[in-house]
Design a protein around this nucleic acid. Structure first.
Lengths: 222, 222
DNA sequence: GAATTATGACTGACCGGTCAGTTTTTTCAA
DNA sequence: TTGAAAAAACTGACCGGTCAGTCATAATTC
């Protein structure tokens, strides 16, 4: 912290810390919430634990979020939005082959989600989604639908460039994202029982799925 | 329990018992538990609801299961075991092509899991598994490890028959099962937002993945 | 009538959300 | 510049409700 105006410990009633501004505090709450929700699930997470970890009192949480569900929603929104935005931008102006594009995107998914606490959000949503339909709907609109559009765009691009021949992934983008989901789940649940090299698995997935969609190295026109 | 010394005074024909026998009651509890856990999640499920649905009092539950976690464990065990056993038997003596075998297995997964309340167990496990490590370990041993062995056996068989050339699915059985998981999750969470024809998706998956693994229609030897 | 099985009221712990009170920051008149 | 009051931010004890698990009692069986 700021070393200049540190007050001596003589007066215990006086917290020397300056108040963080609203945005910083909100972010601290979200960070704490991610950790606690990830560890305990939605129902099992205690608001008091979130508060303690964020360095605030419980009441303060309710100045920033209406209730527990709103906190969770805020969590999903802030975690997913930047990653998706970045990917959309990259797809929109990627010059190289579709294979290189997929390699890049899965590397992003690996680095930004699988290897970070963000992956817990995915698993959390899966577990709690059915009990909170409005949350599942929100997640569908905010993340899933956008992700599907992204995958469809990639597939349409590959078809147009003559790199692949099958439209299966256009009809079922789930076929592309499935192993990523599996990896997220595996790491959280079974890593202790049997470690998984997610990066190698996703690389194998790209190979298999592209070949399965009729991959030709240079495309039809080149 | 020896058959020789039947109770002298009792009527030889068993009068219809008013109380259901232990096994039937246990099954009734498990059926009720599946419904309630599926709807509310582990933490949200109330033991009293399970009891009411099973037609017993709450205390009776504790005559059959030590606590809530033991009930959940019993649920996982009884739901998964028969399906896996059936599949193992089928794979062990299947005469036809690997494609036909995969079609058959995914049809089973569709009919026995995706289309039944059993699919909720999968989703439940994903959501709650990290909070109950011993449950995740149990599930891994009971279901996941067996499923992997099954998939590896299928892939080894296909390689041996010269039907495919890639060993990717031997190294990562997750690539085969991924879309099935995705389908389970999708149906529970997003069916309302965007319906998914799981059967068609799994059919497309088989096509893509077999082609991706280097499928040859007749195998090398035939 | 003894043994087994079932019951459901009860208990103790837990937790989301509130709010009266406290501390910090801002405002503004002198 | 000052300092006093108003506004804003924060706190945590508390409340109301929930629920897993218990156990004294009752019902059924043999």
């Amino acid at each position: 912290m700021t070393g200049a105006d540190q007050t001596p410990r003589a007066t215990p009633r006086r917290p020397p810390r300056k108040r963080p501004d609203a945005a910083a505090r909100r972010q601290a709450i979200l960070d704490a919430a991610l950790a606690v929700f990830a560890e305990k699930g939605f129902a099992g997470a205690r608001m008091e634990d979130v508060a303690r970890r964020a360095g605030t009192a419980k009441g303060t949480l309710y100045l920033h979020f209406k209730d527990k569900a709103a906190l969770f929603e805020g969590l999903v929104r802030t975690a997913a939005d930047p990653v998706l935005g970045m990917m959309e931008a990259q797809v929109a102006q990627f010059p190289g082959s579709t294979r290189d594009l997929l390699v890049l995107l899965f590397a992003r998914l690996h680095g930004e989600i699988i290897c970070t606490p963000r992956r817990h959000i995915v698993r959390l949503l899966i577990g709690e989604g059915e009990r909170f339909p409005e949350l599942a709907d929100f997640y569908f609109r905010t993340v899933v639908a956008r992700g599907q559009d992204l995958l469809r765009a990639i597939n349409a691009r590959a078809l147009a460039r003559g790199e692949i021949t099958s439209d299966a992934a256009l009809r079922f983008p789930q076929l592309i994202i499935g192993p990523f989901l599996t990896a997220v789940i595996w790491i959280d649940l079974f890593e202790r029982s049997e470690p998984l090299d997610a990066e190698a698995m996703l690389a194998a997935h790209i190979d298999v799925v592209l070949r399965g969609l009729g991959w030709r190295d240079e495309g039809v026109g080149a």
